[in-house]
C-alpha cells in the first residue's frame, strides 16, 4: 500500500470522494495481509533456525543450511521423482480427457441425453476428497470391494489393489480422471456451443465428414482455451494435491506415494522442524514458478495466448 503516492492521482482526494468504498475494502485487505502476505513474510524462517519461543524475527539466521540439508538428503531425489511422476502422469491423463468428453458430447448434439450426461459427469466433482478416497478404498477393498467381487465372480483371484505400491499411481491418476473430467469439460463444452455455425455449414458444403469437422472447425475453436488450460496445468505440476495423496498413503505404498507436500507436512507439523519444512516448501514453490514461467514463454513463442 506504500506505492499509493507514486501515482499521479491524489490519495487524499480519492479517499475524500470515495471513503465509503475505502471502508468496505478494509476487511478484505486486512484478510489478504494477515493470511496471505504475513505467511509470505514468514518464509524467512527457511533461512533461520526457527524457535517458537524467539518468534519469527528473533530466531537466528542460518543462511542456506536447511536447503543444503535437503539437497544432500537421500530422500530428496525420491521425493522429487515421486512428485514429478504423479503429477505428469496425472496431467497426461486428465488433460485430454475433458476435451475428448466435450467433443463426444458435441457429436451427440443438443439432446436431453447430452444434458443428462453432462450433469452426471460433473457430479463427482462435488464429492469431498475424504469421501472420494473412502469410495476408492471400499470399491477396491480386498475382501468386500465390488471390483474384487466381480473378479472372483469371473473366477479370477482377488487383488490387493491398495497394498501394491506399483498400482498406487494408476489408482491415484484414474480416480482423478473419474472425479474431475466432467467438471473440466464444462468450459470446453460451452466453447463448442459458441462455435460459429457458418463455419460448420461451410465445412458441410465442402463435403467434410464428422472427423474432418473436428479437425477443421472444432479443435481450432478450442485451441486458445486448451493453451491457457495447459499453461495453468503445467503451473500446477508441483502443486499436486496434498490431500488426496496424503489420504491414500499407507505403509506399503509410501516409497512411491511420498511427495514433497506430504513430506513438508510430516517434517513440519509432526516433527516440528518448521524451518526445514519451510525450506522444502519454498524449493517446491520455486520449481513450480519456473515451470509456469517456461510454459508461458513457450506458448508465447508459438504465437499463442499467454497468461501475461
Amino acid at each position: 500500500m506504500e506505492k499509493k503516492k507514486k501515482k499521479k492521482w491524489s490519495l487524499k482526494e480519492d479517499f475524500k470522494k470515495r471513503w465509503q468504498l475505502y471502508l468496505m475494502l478494509i476487511l478484505p485487505v486486512a484478510y489478504i495481509i494477515v493470511f496471505c502476505y504475513a505467511p509470505m513474510g514468514g518464509i524467512v524462517i527457511a533461512f533461520k533456525n526457527y524457535s517458537f519461543r524467539k518468534g519469527i524475527w528473533g530466531s537466528d539466521w542460518v543462511g542456506l543450511k536447511y536447503f543444503k540439508q535437503f539437497f544432500v538428503n537421500p530422500d530428496m531425489a525420491k521425493l522429487l521423482k515421486n512428485t514429478l511422476i504423479i503429477s505428469l502422469y496425472s496431467l497426461a491423463a486428465s488433460f485430454p480427457a475433458p476435451i475428448i468428453l466435450a467433443l463426444a458430447l458435441n457429436i451427440i448434439g443438443g439432446t436431453k441425453f447430452k444434458k443428462f450426461m453432462q450433469s452426471l459427469t460433473y457430479a463427482p466433482y462435488f464429492i469431498s476428497t475424504v469421501v472420494m478416497v473412502g469410495i476408492i478404498l471400499q470399491c477396491l477393498h480386498l475382501n468386500v470391494g465390488i471390483v474384487n467381487n466381480v473378479l472372483e465372480f469371473l473366477g479370477m483371484d482377488r487383488i490387493d489393489f491398495m497394498g501394491k505400491a506399483s498400482l498406487f499411481r494408476h489408482i491415484y491418476v484414474w480416480s482423478g480422471v473419474w472425479q474431475g473430467t466432467g467438471y473440466s469439460a464444462i468450459i470446453y463444452i460451452a466453447t463448442l456451443g459458441n462455435v460459429d455455425q457458418s463455419l460448420v455449414e461451410a465445412s458441410l458444403i465442402d463435403g467434410a465428414n464428422r472427423w474432418q469437422r473436428i479437425k477443421i472447425v472444432e479443435l481450432p475453436a478450442l485451441k486458445p482455451i486448451i493453451t491457457i488450460q495447459l499453461i495453468m496445468a503445467v503451473g500446477g505440476v508441483m502443486g499436486v494435491g496434498f490431500e488426496k495423496v496424503f489420504l491414500m498413503q499407507n505403509s506399503l505404498n509410501l516409497p512411491v506415494s511420498e511427495i514433497i507436500s506430504t513430506y513438508v507436512y510430516k517434517r513440519g507439523l509432526h516433527d516440528m522442524q518448521y524451518s526445514f519444512a519451510t525450506a522444502v516448501g519454498l524449493f517446491n514453490s520455486v520449481v513450480n514458478f519456473i515451470l509456469i514461467f517456461i510454459a508461458n514463454k513457450v506458448s508465447q513463442k508459438f504465437g499463442e495466448t499467454s497468461l501475461w
Binding site: 501515482k7 492521482w9 504475513a38 514468514g42 518464509i43 513438508v264 507439523l269
Partner: peptide, 29 residues
C-alpha cells in the same frame, strides 16, 4: 472505475494467486 486506488488493490490481491507462504508459514501465522 471511478475508484482511483483500485488498480493498486487489484495488483495487491492478484499477487496472492501466484505466490503463497506455503503450509508451514501459514500454520505459524
Amino acid at each position: 472505475t471511478d475508484l482511483k486506488i483500485r488498480g493498486v488493490v487489484m495488483f495487491f490481491f492478484t499477487v496472492t494467486m501466484f505466490f503463497s507462504g506455503g503450509m508451514i508459514p501459514t500454520y505459524l501465522v
